[in-house]
Design a protein around this nucleic acid. Structure first.
Lengths: 170, 170
DNA sequence: TATTGTTATACTCTATAACTATA
DNA sequence: TATAGTTATAGAGTATAACAATA
């Protein structure tokens, strides 16, 4: 059981099996009952995030994106015109990592660094047409992956999960 | 706002600010409203897990543990006598990573690799007295950190969050 | 033949500290 | 004096492939 092959998981997460092979749908932790850890939010969030990111990375692989690049592109495509500092805070990424992510997105012609008229130290990041188009397709891919990885939750449960995670994440 | 100093975050997570400095308690995403990404579970789980792990790592630092080592110790101390393969699957860690984690825990005298009478290829991992004692203290530290990072959620909401995350994580 | 644990290796991400140009 | 972006570098974590012992 459970293929020990990590698969092309991209990077930002993943682990030994692309998808939990234990007791999905049993309503509990399946064959891992009795381990106190399964009741701890820190562990549950880490595991869910790891598996979810792996799924999303697989879904994004065909578009040449991974979760972090996709997330940055999503903020840039929101119309908010973020600076790199804002991206750093929102995505919980170090400024130096933002540089690398944007270098790649800019090299591919998906975003542009533009001058901030109010502070010449800052870069305002805006999407290109190609960036907006790729983002639209990427979002579909991520949504489809989410649909699959949260397949056990009802729409109402998903909405509640998102609400609670928002309180935990901000 | 928001100290750009990452602080001694351990490793398994972290980012630019140890704790969200935006609009905690506003019931929403604060100054990040209008970014579609904040509604996506993959992003929310990654952000919550990142901040939560950073908090937990800070809480565990004084005990010489980080989230992954703590998690492995927790499973070993559950009385389940896991093999390394089982730890790999449960913790979503590659077998080679489990080797490194256990090498460290064993070197510190917290766990022991013992022979599996039913399969001489496997190691059955058991805790030492010192391991059980350290785990008890570590669990308290993690629980306290969780108490703080989920401080905005009512007990009922935390319970519901744990239930939904369990469905998502297994 | 397949699996467990192990080692080795390459790559990515995280963390820190410096540097520049602005403010 | 402080901040935004950049670069460089050290340290963890992730992903693969191979191997010995065992099944």
């Amino acid at each position: 059981m459970a293929s020990p092959t990590p698969a092309e998981t991209g990077t930002a997460s993943a682990g030994p099996d692309g998808k939990g092979a234990e007791a999905k749908g049993s309503g509990g932790s399946g064959r891992f009952d009795g381990i106190g850890l399964v009741a701890e939010p820190v562990f549950l969030m880490a595991r869910a995030a790891s598996l979810g990111s792996a799924d999303a990375n697989r879904a994004l692989a065909g578009l040449g994106l991974k979760v972090r690049g996709y997330s940055a592109l999503a903020v840039v495509c929101s119309g908010r015109k973020p600076t790199q500092r804002e991206l750093s805070e929102f995505l919980v990424m170090l400024p130096s990592r933002v540089v690398a992510i944007l270098d790649e997105l800019e090299r591919r012609g998906l975003v542009q660094r533009t001058a901030d008229p109010r502070d010449r130290r800052s870069n305002v990041i805006v999407p290109t047409e190609a960036g907006l188009e790729l983002y639209a397709r990427a979002k579909e891919a991520v949504d489809a992956a989410t649909e699959e990885s949260l397949g056990d939750l009802t729409p109402k449960e998903r909405q509640e999960l998102a609400r609670l995670l928002t309180k935990a994440a901000f």
